[in-house]
Simulated assay, not measured.
Amino acid sequence: MGFLKDLATLTARGNAAYARMDVGASLEAASRSMEQAGRVLAATTPRPDEEWLEAMRLRTTAAVVDARQLPMAIGMNVVVELDLVVAMPSGFPLPVTRTEQLAPLQLFRVAPGSSLDVSIVPGRPESVRIEWGA
């Protein structure tokens, strides 16, 4: 009889928890989480520039100033926000912030103080692209 008593107790507690649950609030929280995940995914997905802009893209390097892991993952990839200082050909440093998704084994590449190969369209700081394959 102990099993059936425990089952009845668990059922009663589950029903009580279900009665206290606010389904609307749970759906709203899930919707906010999905919107945030969509924004992060959009930020980490490279957008192809127009062909003539791609022809103007310059290769340079960037120093990692700070790397913050965001509290989400896309598949097995970790989402990281990077503060970079891009070494511009003109000699002026350009601070930028990028959101990237990385495999956990690649996190060592974005340690503060490390250098990354990047490319940029002159005059468009938002066009900074980390060249992971280089």
Rank of each mutant, 00 (worst) to 15 (best):
L82C: 04
D6G: 08
W52N: 08
L116G: 02
P104F: 01
D66I: 03
L27I: 09
P71I: 04
A16C: 08
A19Y: 14
L102Q: 01
S127Y: 01
S33C: 15
L41W: 07
G113M: 08
A43M: 08
V128S: 00
L94G: 01
I120K: 00
T99C: 09
D49A: 14
A67W: 02
G2R: 13
T60M: 02
P46V: 00
N15M: 15
E81N: 07
M21G: 05
V80L: 05
R20A: 15
P112C: 11
S114H: 14
K5H: 13
P112A: 12
Y18A: 13
M56F: 10
D6T: 08
L105P: 08
R109D: 06
S31F: 09
D83W: 06
T44D: 02
A16N: 09
M56P: 00
F92K: 11
T61S: 12
P112K: 05
A42I: 03
R20I: 11
A12P: 05
V23T: 05
G2W: 11
T60W: 03
L41M: 12
R59M: 09
S115C: 14
V65L: 11
L116M: 07
R98I: 03
L70S: 06
E54H: 04
E28I: 06
T9S: 11
L102F: 05
P89V: 02
M1A: 11
G14D: 08
P104D: 04
Q69L: 11
A30M: 14
L94F: 03
L4M: 14
V118T: 01
A67K: 02
P122N: 04
A111T: 11
L10P: 06
T44M: 13
L27G: 09
V23F: 06
D6Y: 12
A42C: 10
F3S: 14
G14C: 10
T97C: 09
R98V: 06
V78L: 07
P93E: 12
P93N: 07
K5G: 09
A73H: 09
Y18T: 10
D83K: 08
Q106S: 15
W132E: 08
A12I: 06
I120R: 00
V96L: 01
V40D: 08
W52D: 13
F92S: 12
E50T: 07
A19Q: 15
E100C: 12
V78K: 07
N77C: 10
T9G: 03
P48W: 08
T45L: 09
W132K: 07
V96P: 02
V118P: 02
D22S: 11
T44V: 15
W52S: 09
M1W: 03
L94P: 01
A29M: 13
V128W: 01
R13H: 13
T9C: 07
L41Y: 10
R124D: 04
S114G: 12
T97K: 13
P48A: 10
E100F: 07
V79W: 00
L84C: 06
V110E: 02
E35W: 13
V80D: 02
